[in-house]
């Protein structure tokens, strides 16, 4: 799909080449990238500098992410989709794990957290062994690959209200949200990643991708705290089929959904115990979608 898109961009771009030279050049050259070597990052009280990350990047990252940051490192060919996703293309500046709304750049802290946390079910390990300064430098280095940071500011992080007490009512309400916005279309009625649309999913570059399986015991890619799970469905994972639900799930309902999703997970939790007591059945995929609560 991307190749067709690029072909069209080329065709279309040549027609308007004078006005839009950028449209015709899909891949950035080393020269373009080097002009942004002054990129910085600010994580807490640490300032990262891209120019200081050249060596650590070459040592720890280049094998998969590639010298041009496009995810075409020499090891990347061996990552088999859909289970093991290819590395990001940093040149596109599109990232899964953000605290910011869909279609916006992540914050420096988001990128720092991603490097620190690594990605479960992928070849990206945790880099918490690197010093804070080194990680901040690498964040700046990642940013220097994409021209987006020169033209845009990161989005405003979404507001997460304080976590309420887990109750049986909230878990039941979360099940209603799960049914209404139809999470099960991909994730399955029991969170087993076997919904009717699961098998056909592709990422933005047209490569097969699997929805998260809540039941197999692994952690969600963008973190496994309750806040992380809240953030995942409210921001969406850009570059993947996972959309943002920020417009359609109210903050309070979002906590209900987080609690319901916990009941799918293998790890023992208060939510799991409460759900057992309730005897909740999975949502019925053949029932008509429940109407939105209140005005939308």
């Amino acid at each position: 799909m991307r190749t067709t898109l690029q072909n069209w961009t080329l065709l279309f771009g040549s027609a308007v080449l004078l006005a839009f030279p950028a449209a015709a050049s899909a891949q950035l050259s080393t020269y373009d990238i080097e002009t942004r070597i002054g990129a910085e990052s600010h994580v807490g009280n640490v300032t990262g500098h891209a120019k200081d990350a050249a060596l650590p990047y070459r040592r720890y990252c280049v094998g998969c992410h590639g010298p041009l940051g496009d995810g075409n490192g020499e090891n990347a060919d061996w990552f088999l989709t859909p289970m093991y996703q290819k590395p990001r293309d940093f040149q596109l500046g599109v990232f899964k794990c953000r605290s910011t709304p869909t279609g916006t750049l992540p914050t420096d802290q988001d990128l720092f957290d991603a490097i620190t946390r690594g990605f479960d079910r992928s070849n990206m390990p945790q880099w918490n062994t690197l010093s804070k300064q080194e990680r901040a430098d690498l964040v700046a280095w990642v940013k220097h690959y994409s021209p987006r940071w020169a033209n845009e500011k990161p989005g405003a992080p979404i507001q997460i209200p304080p976590e309420p007490e887990v109750t049986a009512e909230r878990i039941k309400a979360g099940r209603d949200v799960f049914a209404r916005v139809q999470c099960w279309k991909c994730h399955g009625v029991q969170g087993m990643a076997n919904g009717p649309s699961a098998s056909t999913l592709t990422d933005d570059l047209g490569r097969p991708i699997a929805p998260f399986n809540f039941t197999e015991g692994s952690r969600p890619k963008c973190g496994d705290t309750d806040q992380d799970i809240y953030r995942i469905f409210m921001t969406g994972l850009d570059g993947t089929p996972m959309p943002s639900f920020a417009d359609n799930i109210k903050p309070d309902e979002a906590w209900d959904l987080v609690f319901y999703l916990r009941t799918f997970m293998r790890q023992h939790s208060k939510e799991k115990d409460l759900a057992k007591g309730l005897g909740l059945k999975p949502v019925d995929p053949n029932a008509p979608a429940p109407a939105a609560s209140g005005q939308q």
Binding site: S25, S146, Q182, G236, D247
Partner: peptide, 27 residues
């Protein structure tokens, strides 16, 4: 039924991809 609306532009042009859900009755 729930849709997700997912335009896929090339970010190099300046158009940024986004992906939003639209359940029944969504604004």
């Amino acid at each position: 039924t729930t849709h997700n609306i997912h335009p896929n532009p090339n970010p190099m042009t300046g158009n940024i991809p986004w992906n939003q859900s639209q359940p029944p009755g969504a604004a």
